[in-house]
């Protein structure tokens, strides 16, 4: 109950950091997002659940314009992503302007996507020094602090290929954080990891949530959703099927799709390990 109060308190105070309005996205004939509406407030941790193919990742990728919406709009910090409102129409932005907008969102991918030709520290320095044109010396201190906070300070000068999946993902989180984004997007951050490495990444994410970072997390980790999320969004067939605090959506689901999904997860968990 404390989390709900916490969230509602935030809602009363401020405008949403991310506002998704009537978002639609089609790939050819396939309509992945039919109509999505979602508000994310500063400091909120929103976990998106749903079957694969329900449009979770597509929605997340629309927030930083890695996917171009077919309709509707996404606003980050009150600014329409990828477009400029001019008169009655939304005019598409130039690539450089979109790049500037993206600097405000951090993204963590399922497959880590560290830059293999750069050392861990260089991975962290690249964007702040090039995109924000900050001095490398200044950024280096912050980068080292972040690496310490994800427990990888001693790996600063090695190449990513020498790290485990869990370590790579923690570096990827630090790489996104060093840009000081106003919201962090996580696209199934633990799905590519060996089971024993999932915990260390979730621990870093929990710590980040505690620090007050606004987070939108697409995941299958129900435990994380229950323990950390302020809001759980269940998506089905390109729409938000159900939305609310974890105590409601996970423990007392109303929508049929949510019930079926959670039941199938429980069955999988109850299956004895061979």
């Amino acid at each position: 109950m404390a989390t709900i109060a916490h969230t509602e308190h935030l809602r009363d105070q401020s405008d949403p950091i991310v506002k998704i309005v009537e978002l639609r996205k089609s790939f050819g004939d396939l309509e992945v997002l039919k109509s999505v509406n979602l508000d994310v407030y500063p400091g909120q941790v929103v976990v998106i659940l749903g079957r694969s193919g329900s449009g979770k990742s597509t929605m997340l990728r629309c927030i930083n314009h890695l996917e171009k919406p077919s309709g509707g709009a996404v606003l980050v910090n009150g600014e329409v992503v990828g477009y400029r409102l001019k008169g009655e129409k939304l005019h598409e932005l130039r690539p450089n302007e979109i790049a500037r907008q993206r600097a405000a969102t951090g993204m963590v991918f399922q497959s880590f996507n560290l830059f293999p030709h750069l050392t861990v520290l260089e991975n962290l320095l690249e964007a702040p020094c090039r995109v924000l044109r900050r001095s490398p010396n200044e950024v280096r201190d912050e980068a080292m602090k972040l690496l310490t906070s994800v427990g990888l300070a001693e790996k600063a000068n090695v190449y990513p290929s020498t790290l485990s999946g869990g370590q790579q993902q923690r570096v990827a989180i630090a790489r996104a954080l060093v840009m000081k984004p106003s919201v962090m997007l996580f696209d199934e951050p633990t799905s590519a990891l060996d089971p024993e490495l999932v915990g260390e990444v979730l621990e870093v994410m929990k710590e980040l949530a505690r620090s007050g970072m606004t987070m939108i997390v697409v995941t299958h980790e129900i435990g994380f959703a229950r323990g950390v999320a302020d809001e759980v969004v269940f998506m089905a067939e390109g729409r938000v099927a159900e939305q609310g605090p974890p105590s409601q959506v996970i423990d007392n689901p109303q929508a049929e799709a949510t019930k079926t999904f959670l039941r199938s997860l429980n069955e999988r968990r109850d299956t004895p390990v061979q």
Partner: peptide, 27 residues
């Protein structure tokens, strides 16, 4: 994915090409 990761960090196309894509392609 490398292009996407660079884009997500706010790099523009030229920057991503010069700093991320080309050095890996050169290998």
């Amino acid at each position: 994915h490398q292009t996407e990761a660079a884009a997500a960090l706010g790099m523009n196309n030229l920057m991503a090409f010069r700093r991320i894509i080309l050095p890996q392609a050169l290998r």
